[in-house]
Each structure stands twice: as structure tokens, then as C-alpha cells.
Design a protein around this nucleic acid. Structure first.
Length: 154
DNA sequence: GCCAACGTTGGC
DNA sequence: GCCAACGTTGGC
């Protein structure tokens, strides 16, 4: 899962109540479908910081609640409001709850990722890959965790 | 700040 | 249904 740290960082997730947050604001159907169809309780998620100087993976989270409606879409006052959904009175947007589980003692920056041959196929490294929720293979996941020297959170 | 890549919108 | 125009993302 990608996030802009100036908006919501992995550190913010760690500091959140129960180290858990509802992943609001995804407004892309492909990303929504992944959360709706693929995200199961207990699944591990890499948290990637985008649009920042030191872009890369900073932590590992876990799905603690499976897909359910993202109410922020229907809230006209929310920055994530979806005027079309409000107008139609039906909300197509889905989110999941994720909990911070492990921190990468050595964040795996984009630079490091690009230099790791095992990670060359990762979607996030491809040019123009804007999707905010992306699949990661078990092998890629393991490599990131090893490179990042993960430590579990209390 | 620039700009390429992408998704969405809306005129036709 | 096509596709140009537009807005956004995000690396650099």
C-alpha cells in the first residue's frame, strides 16, 4: 500500500490507537478491487512512502478487518468525498483496516529496491505505476523484510 | 518545478 | 463508443 508520508506515514500508523487505521480515500477501481477481493484477515501489507525524498518501504502492517464501505466517500465534508456517489446515493468504495506489525529498522528505499535483482519485477518500480494498492509476491515480501531488517512492534 | 504516465470526463 | 482534454500521481 502506498501513502504519502506528509498525509499519513507509517509512523502515524504506529502512533494510531491500537496501531490500526481504516485505509480511507482509495478512489481507484483497480485498487478497490484488490482490497475487496484479495485482502484477507492476517494478510501482510508493505507500507510504501511515495512522493517523498526517501521513497520506499517503511513498515509491515496486517489486515485486521476485511473490505467494507468507505464512509468518507459519502461525507460531503470529507476531503475524500465522492460527489457522484453522494448524488447517486450509493457508495462503491471499499476499504480495509490495517494494523502496524513490524517496522523496518533499515527502510528499503526505492534506490535499494532498484538495486535488488529479486525485486526487479515489482510493480511499484515500473514507470508510471500509480496504483495505490499493488500486489506483492511472497518472494518479494521476504526479500524486503530481510533487506529492511524488520523488528516487531510491541 | 517539470513532465511522463495514467485514469476519468464529456462532447460528439 | 471513440478519443481529446483534463486532472492527478509521483519520480526525478
Amino acid at each position: 500500500m502506498k501513502t504519502e508520508p506528509s498525509v499519513f506515514s507509517f509512523e502515524d500508523l504506529v502512533k494510531a490507537p491500537k496501531q490500526t487505521t481504516a485505509w480511507e480515500g482509495v478512489r481507484n477501481y483497480q485498487a478497490r478491487n484488490l482490497m475487496r477481493d484479495e485482502f484477507k484477515i492476517g494478510d501482510k501489507v508493505l507500507i510504501y512512502h511515495s512522493n517523498t525524498e526517501a521513497a520506499g518501504v517503511y513498515g509491515v502492517a496486517e489486515v485486521v478487518k476485511e473490505g467494507y464501505p468507505d464512509a468518507s466517500a459519502m461525507n460531503a465534508k470529507s476531503q475524500y468525498a465522492d460527489p457522484q456517489a453522494i448524488k447517486k446515493g450509493s457508495n462503491p468504495w471499499i476499504l480495509v483496516d490495517v494494523k502496524a506489525m513490524e517496522i523496518l529498522k533499515k527502510p528499503v528505499t526505492r534506490e535499494v529496491m532498484k538495486n535488488a535483482p529479486q525485486l526487479k519485477d515489482m510493480m511499484v518500480l515500473k514507470k508510471g505505476a500509480r496504483l495505490s494498492v499493488q500486489p506483492v509476491s511472497p518472494e518479494e515480501f521476504k526479500v524486503i523484510c530481510r533487506l529492511g531488517d524488520t523488528a516487531s512492534l510491541a
